[in-house]
């Protein structure tokens, strides 16, 4: 049996990828199970999905804690959590990034495959949804599942949901990724501090009252504390303001769902710590002063 854990963001299709991989294994005559894990989170928030594949019936139903392979659909996730947690010593990590495996820095040195799935998805499907491209990379990097089965599974699974044409485009994305995947060894050296939690006792909380804003060992809690949650990692495209064209009309400032636009000297200034890259500002700017550009993360 081998186990695969997917790390993605809500809406990127981690769950669909895990399910399509299970279907591909099934098409090859294997047994497979797949399920997602997420909390009360929206699109863009970190989520996990799991796939187990075996030659015989699978009885184990738990989440995957010691995977053989880890798949990362969004490279910003390797900055915020240790994706290698529990990965077997001879395991492998497959990351969607523009970097080469040797340029990727993780918590330890590990076999690593990289693929620029976002570019492939944008070119082939027209949207930055990378779940099908990454499946091609999994096929190449692991060598455990044939690309033909992957393609068939994608056409069946995605075709049923999005229409035949979209299913075929997604299969092409997987094939392209299969051809472009690079396998190597990632560098060690990234440090992760264990995330502290704020777990007050009953005595520390005012019964039926408000705690206001508190500085705790887990960071800020209470009213207004969400400002510590930097959502900038969610975006694929970033808005760039052309100050020559900006007239300070405040329309983008009104429309930014994140409140990430501030008016400074009558010009729009974007706070990239929070911008999720929705693109409303570009779409609504009457003077075409904002342009969404593909973000290159180094």
């Amino acid at each position: 049996m081998y186990e695969i854990r997917f790390h993605g963001r809500g809406g990127q299709g981690g769950r669909m990828a895990a399910e399509a991989l299970a279907l591909a294994a099934f098409l090859e005559g294997k047994y497979a199970v797949s399920f997602p894990f997420f909390g009360a989170e929206r699109r863009g928030a970190p989520v996990r999905a799991f796939t187990r594949i075996d030659d015989k019936k699978i009885r184990i139903k738990t989440q995957i804690y010691e995977p053989d392979y880890v798949v990362v659909l969004d490279e910003t996730l390797i900055e915020t959590e240790d994706v290698l947690e529990g990965l077997k010593p001879d395991g492998m990590v497959i990351i969607n990034t523009q970097k080469k495996p040797e340029e990727v820095k993780l918590s330890r040195s590990v076999r690593c495959a990289t693929i620029d799935a976002t570019t492939i998805a944008l070119e082939t499907i027209g949207r930055a949804i990378t779940n099908t491209a990454i499946l091609g990379a999994i096929s190449r990097a692991t060598g455990k599942i044939g690309i033909d089965a992957i393609e068939k599974a994608i056409i069946e699974k995605f075709g049923a949901r999005l229409g035949k044409e979209a299913g075929e485009k997604n299969a092409i994305a997987a094939r392209k990724a299969y051809e472009k995947t690079i396998v190597g060894i990632a560098k060690a050296g990234k440090k992760f501090e264990g995330k502290k939690q704020w777990l007050p006792t009953v005595d520390e909380l005012p019964l039926g009252g408000s705690i206001g804003t508190l500085q705790t060992e887990a960071g800020l809690v209470g009213i207004g504390s969400f400002s510590e949650n930097k959502t900038g990692g969610w975006r694929v495209f970033m808005p760039v303001v052309d100050e020559q064209r900006c007239t300070g009309c405040k329309i983008c400032w009104f429309y930014c769902p994140e409140g990430a636009i501030k008016m400074v000297d009558n010009k729009a200034k974007i706070n990239y710590d929070y911008c999720k890259g929705c693109g409303i500002c570009e779409n609504e700017c009457p003077f075409k002063a904002i342009e969404m550009k593909r973000e290159v993360r180094i």
């Binding site: 809500g10 809406g11 989170e41 929206r42 699109r43 863009g44 928030a45 207004g224 969400f226 400002s227 510590e228 949650n229 930097k230 959502t231 969610w234 975006r235 009309c249 405040k250 329309i251 009104f254 429309y255 930014c256 769902p257 994140e258 409140g259 990430a260 501030k262 008016m263 706070n271 710590d273 929070y274 999720k276 890259g277 929705c278 693109g279 409303i280």
Partner: peptide, 25 residues
């Protein structure tokens, strides 16, 4: 109006709405 609308934010950034959600607006 839009010109004199205060800068104060009583709903902070960092919330986890989907990108493009109208509710935080």
């Amino acid at each position: 109006n839009l010109k004199n609308l205060p800068d104060d934010e009583y709903f902070t950034p960092g919330h986890t709405a989907c990108p493009g959600c109208a509710a935080p607006i």
